[in-house]
Design a protein around this nucleic acid. Structure first.
Length: 423
RNA sequence: GGUGAGGUGCCUGAGAGGCCGAAAGGAUCAGUUUGCUAAACUGACGUACGGGAAACUGUACCGAGGGUUCGAAUCCCUCCCUCACCGCCA
């Protein structure tokens, strides 16, 4: 959620930036400014009447104590009108605030100046590519066939137990998952992140705090009986640790990492591109989250990007980094890098990580602040990134590392898997 | 699920219609003193919104929402949550 005061003071810039995100309703900006004017004048009116009424109430108390009952009654007679006014202004204020809120939550975050204009994923900017794409033999298999061949993942069994998109990992497939999770967590801790293990269901306030609500309501599984959402990413519970928190300046940066399953309804996604591990309703992910001083957030974003790239390099996966264009970015993000690995058997790039700076968009909703050098509270910046999401990493590893002998496990993972080959 | 007790500031905890944005202690910060550390003393110390260049100032907030009253942390109603015990149970 953007800050009204910022919109008010930077109208032109807000409109320019929203245009980069292809925002369709620029007139909302002026409506918001007008509502804010109304809100402020209403509050001033109400405050003035309240001040009068408060003063009168105090006076009545003093007169009563002094035994001047008649005078007290005289003032009492006037309070009726004030009460009506306070009620009237109060209702108007509440209605105006509500209307303002309903509009302001429709505004996406403003993109950073480096974000390219564009509508579709094709217009994302390729920042860099790293690693050679492997040449596979002609009889190379896509990961879903490898998974069957080596008895690693049973998609059909998942359908029986739950439904499509809920695979069952078996044998070395299950162990590979666990190895990757542990490896990612260990690397994050080496980079200074402290591990948290968080709830997999969150309440509405948390969903709003990180911006999944109201924007992506339909993408989350909802437990109606208890009004809880299954998390679509660890970002939600981990970032919400800091909801309604005022941090001391020296507590920044906050660095947390955590592994969770993630649940996504992915309503409307079908077809060849979602085969196998390409798109699931439940998958595992290690997430890194930071809360930082606003001056440091872009520097931090680069560090987080470098961390993710380090993992990919260590795993020996060819990857590229994209700077998402305005049209492809998330609602809450100011700048997002996507990391994609090259899936050699499918001959396509697969997104395995997304690293974003939300600036104050989340912290404004979360009321996540820190005390700055002047002793004032100020909104912190939040960032997060996948480091990494498992299924597509598994897919790429299986495909790219297939040989006649079997599938070679990357060296860094062997201490975790305790085996070198899937054969 | 049943029964009981509670929700007050960073924490503990008083306050039971006006003198309360809220005692006291602790924590924290600044200063004084002490050779250092510790201690002692002095002072500061909630958040949000509005007005103001600022100093400052108005309003709201004692779990949430309503109500009674000239006036509510305090009384009434509804809801939420926490804790304890019992039941059930990984």
């Amino acid at each position: 959620m953007l800050q009204v005061s910022y919109i008010r003071d930077n109208r032109e810039q807000v409109l320019d930036r929203l245009a980069v995100k292809n925002f369709k309703q620029p007139e909302l900006v002026d409506e918001i400014i007008a509502l804010d004017d109304k809100r402020r004048s209403t509050q001033t009116s109400m405050d003035n009447v309240s001040a009068e009424a408060n003063a009168a109430a105090k006076q009545i108390g003093e007169l009563m104590r002094a035994g001047k009952k008649a005078e007290a009654e005289e003032i009492k007679a006037k309070t009726g009108a004030w009460k009506e006014d306070i009620k009237k202004f109060g209702d108007l204020l509440a209605a105006t605030e509500e209307e303002l809120y309903q509009k302001i939550v429709l505004l996406p975050n403003l993109p950073h100046s480096s974000v390219p204009k564009g509508l579709t994923p094709e217009e994302n900017e390729v920042v860099l590519e790293n690693g050679a794409k492997p040449e596979l033999p002609a009889n190379a298999l896509p990961h879903w066939e490898l998974a069957a061949k080596y008895n690693l993942i049973d998609f059909e069994l998942g359908v029986k137990i739950t439904g499509a998109g809920f695979p069952v990992y078996k044998n070395k497939g299950a162990k590979l998952q666990r190895a990757l999770i542990n490896y990612f967590i260990d690397e994050a801790e080496k980079a200074g992140y402290s591990e948290v293990s968080v709830p997999l269901m969150v309440n509405k306030d948390s969903g709003f705090g990180t911006g999944q609500l109201p924007d992506k309501e339909g993408q989350m599984y909802f437990v109606t009986e208890d009004e809880l959402y299954l998390i679509p990413t660890a970002e939600v519970p981990v970032t919400n640790i800091y909801r309604d928190v005022i941090l001391k300046a020296d507590e920044l940066p906050v660095k947390n990492c955590g592994h969770t399953p993630c649940f996504r309804r992915e309503a409307g996604s079908y077809g060849a591109h979602v085969r196998g591990l390409n798109r699931l309703h439940q998958f595992d992910k290690v997430e890194i989250v930071q809360v930082v001083h606003p001056d440091k957030s872009y520097e931090t974003l680069e560090q987080m990007s470098a961390h993710v790239q380090g993992l990919l390099k260590n795993l020996g996966l060819p990857y590229r980094v994209l700077r998402l264009c305005g049209g492809d970015m998330g609602f809450a993000s100011a700048l997002t890098y996507d990391m994609e690995t090259w899936s050699a058997a499918q001959q396509r790039w697969l997104e395995v990580s997304s690293v974003s700076n939300f600036e104050t968009f989340q912290s404004n909703r979360l009321k996540l602040r820190f005390r700055n050098s002047e002793g004032k509270t100020q909104l912190a910046h939040t960032l997060n990134g996948s480091a990494l999401a498992l299924p597509r990493i598994v897919a790429t590893l299986l495909e790219n590392n297939q040989t006649e002998k079997g599938i070679k496990i990357p060296e860094v993972l062997v201490p975790y898997t305790k085996f070198e080959w899937i054969d």
